[in-house]
Simulated assay, not measured.
Amino acid sequence: MTTSEVRIIHVTIHVPIERAYAFVHRPENFPRWAAGLADSLRPTERGWVADTPEGEALIHFSEPNVFGVLDHRVVLNGKPDVVVPMRMVPNGDGTEVQLVLFRQPGMTDADFKRDARMVKGDLGALKTLLEAER
């Protein structure tokens, strides 16, 4: 059995989960807080597409749901799919956002740390954005 190294990155956002989820579950809002998708995420006839250093990626987002699931899958030609589990759960009057970052096969320590910093920055940007709109 093979497993991957993971980092669970989380942030507490001081807005109700209903409001936080209503914003984040919409792919068109990802560029407002997710730096990796900021400039290029767009709807196409094939679904949501983003430009990456490795080429065009198809992004599949989970359907809106009552469980706070915000998973998405990144599909690049010739590469294994990257699954990004993400959840929102109530935390009192606020929201806890959790993302599981999997270390991809062949990823260096430096690249894994860089990805973790980027995700932490993205979640921080989401917190700032949502809390500023209170």
Rank of each mutant, 00 (worst) to 15 (best):
Q98G: 03
V89K: 14
A116P: 01
G55V: 10
Q104N: 12
I8G: 08
A57V: 03
N65L: 13
V15L: 08
R19K: 13
M118C: 10
I9V: 12
F23M: 04
H60W: 03
G106R: 00
A38R: 10
T108P: 05
D93A: 13
I13L: 07
S62W: 05
M1D: 12
S4H: 14
G55M: 13
K120C: 07
D71F: 00
F23K: 02
G55W: 10
D81N: 14
R42V: 10
M88E: 04
T108F: 12
V100W: 06
K127A: 01
Q98R: 12
S4K: 15
Q104L: 15
E131C: 05
P27G: 04
G36E: 08
L37G: 01
A38H: 07
Q104V: 11
V75A: 12
V11H: 07
A34Q: 05
M107A: 11
K127C: 02
V100S: 03
L101K: 00
R117S: 14
V74H: 00
T128S: 12
P90K: 04
R114M: 14
A20T: 00
V75Y: 03
P43R: 09
T3M: 11
R32V: 02
E18C: 05
P80Y: 01
R46E: 12
E5P: 07
R87E: 11
I17T: 07
E133T: 09
T52Y: 04
A110F: 09
G78D: 06
G92N: 08
V97G: 01
R7D: 11
K120S: 14
T3D: 12
P90R: 03
A125W: 04
N29G: 04
L76H: 00
H14I: 06
T52W: 05
P64T: 06
L70Q: 01
W48L: 14
L70E: 00
P31K: 05
A116F: 06
P16R: 05
G55D: 10
P105K: 10
D71T: 04
M88S: 01
G121S: 12
T52F: 02
A20D: 03
M1P: 02
W33S: 03
V119Y: 03
R19D: 07
V89S: 14
G36C: 08
A132M: 09
Y21T: 00
E56I: 06
S4F: 13
T108A: 15
E28T: 06
D39E: 15
P85Q: 09
S62L: 06
E96S: 05
F67N: 10
V75E: 11
N77I: 09
S40C: 13
H10I: 00
H25E: 11
V84A: 09
A20R: 02
D51F: 04
I13R: 01
H72S: 09
V100L: 11
T3H: 13
N77E: 14
L130R: 02
R42T: 10
E131Q: 13
